[in-house]
Amino acid sequence: MSGDVLIEVRGLRTYFPIRRGLLRTKVGDVKAVDGVSFHIRRGETLGLVGESGSGKTTVGRSLLRLQEPTAGAIFVDGVDFLALSGAKLRQTRRRLQMVFQDPYASLNPRMKVEDLIAEPLQIQGVLRRAAIRARVAELMDLVGLPAQARGRYAHEFSGGQRQRIGIARALALNPDLIVCDEAIASLDVSIQAQIVNLLEDLQQQLGLTYLFIAHDLSMVRHISDRIAVMYLGKIMELADRDAIHERPLHPYTQALISAIPVPDPDLEAAREHIVLEGDMPSPASPPPGCVFSTRCRFAQPRCSAEVPDWREVSPGHFAACHFA
């Protein structure tokens, strides 16, 4: 199922400058993404989880260069993506698409469904009108939108259907990778399942690769092959979907997994929840040493002095903790 490496990210940093005063002098940085490395194989789904503000969206946006990274390297099929410009950049960018969280905000309500889906094709400007019409029909069928819906406006659709429109747009240019950023978060449980099934079917049919960003770990486990756990701009742990759930090595992952309520009254009654104290610190002033040290149950003096290495603890299982 999973083949060669499609995406390789090394030491990615994306900072947002904090400016103050009349002269807008830079007084610091929001370190939204602060040195992350991972790869995604072709046909694979990598899940990316973490609390809000941990930098998940910024990783996704940096990957597509919707946000220029501050440092690090991104390789797409071995090609240095950050070094590309002009036509080469456009060509590669087309292969990387995104589906957004809010199907309400991300689609222009005054556009018809067919125009929304045709838009990326028109911008690309290769296909003729008739070919675009045919491609739109094909895409609508692919994502399960009824053909009669083509003349209707986005605001006439329910959340789940709007998300289908968003997926059709992302698919229009035959991408290799789709970044799904909280793509199901705003949907009802029963509709979430429809969209997740659709994403899985499309992956099978088209050989797509996904970066699936979410904070619902049980859904991430369902859809992902491997999972990366982010906290305050860094990846804390990365491993196989089952290893992350059954043998989490990092104290943050352990707390996160234990915090997810399971839909089973017997299991819930028997489980012990690790309740993390306090909130995530601000990425404008992350704590020294291990960024999780202010909330970690196992923190030692060393933890606030030394940044833990990103280590491969067992084959394919990475963690950043002195004691993992």
Binding site: S158, G160, Q161, V189, S190, I191, Q192, A193, Q194, V196, N197, E200, S218, M219, R221, H222, H245, V262, P263
Partner: peptide
């Protein structure tokens, strides 16, 4: 039944499908 079936299960095998409720 449909609501509970829409949830991913902890004991599911790789590649299992969610039993979603059709329609809305």
């Amino acid at each position: 039944v449909g609501l509970l079936g829409s949830l991913p299960r902890l004991d599911e095998t790789v590649g299992g499908r969610l039993r979603s409720i059709p329609g809305r």
